[in-house]
């Protein structure tokens, strides 16, 4: 049963990969990477049970944290053009709103 689950996740990963390669817009790519990270977390969880070592779940949780930070960094880069845009207090979004 774990095999079936892991293969379903692998198929989903392949679909994410297709979207990351073809994705017409940047948001498709960002979303595919974020979703790919989620699939990795799921795959690690399933692999832990498949290989009889459920302690892998802890690692999967840490991956979820890393994935979150990476996605935030990517989105921030895309919004401000670089990663230290917030340091100026120069917020394009706020400027547009005013």
């Amino acid at each position: 049963m774990y095999w079936v689950a892991s293969f379903a996740i692998l198929v989903a990963m392949a679909l994410m990969l297709v979207r990351a390669v073809k994705g017409p817009t940047v948001y498709d790519r960002v979303l595919s990477v974020n979703s790919f990270g989620t699939k990795t977390v799921l795959l690690l969880g399933v692999l832990g049970f498949l290989m009889g070592r459920p302690a892998f779940l802890d690692i999967a949780l840490l991956y979820a944290l890393i994935n979150f930070i990476a996605t935030i960094a990517i989105l921030k880069f895309f919004r401000y053009g670089d990663l230290s845009g917030m340091m100026h207090g120069d917020d394009p979004a706020r400027r547009e709103a005013e």
Partner: peptide, 29 residues
Amino acid sequence: LFGVAMLSGIYSLLSAAFFVALDAVDVAF
């Protein structure tokens, strides 16, 4: 290059999962 950066992230996640499958958890992390 933005797409390449995204794909390199995917590549790292995949190889991390592969390392876990090989029992090399510390390398994977």
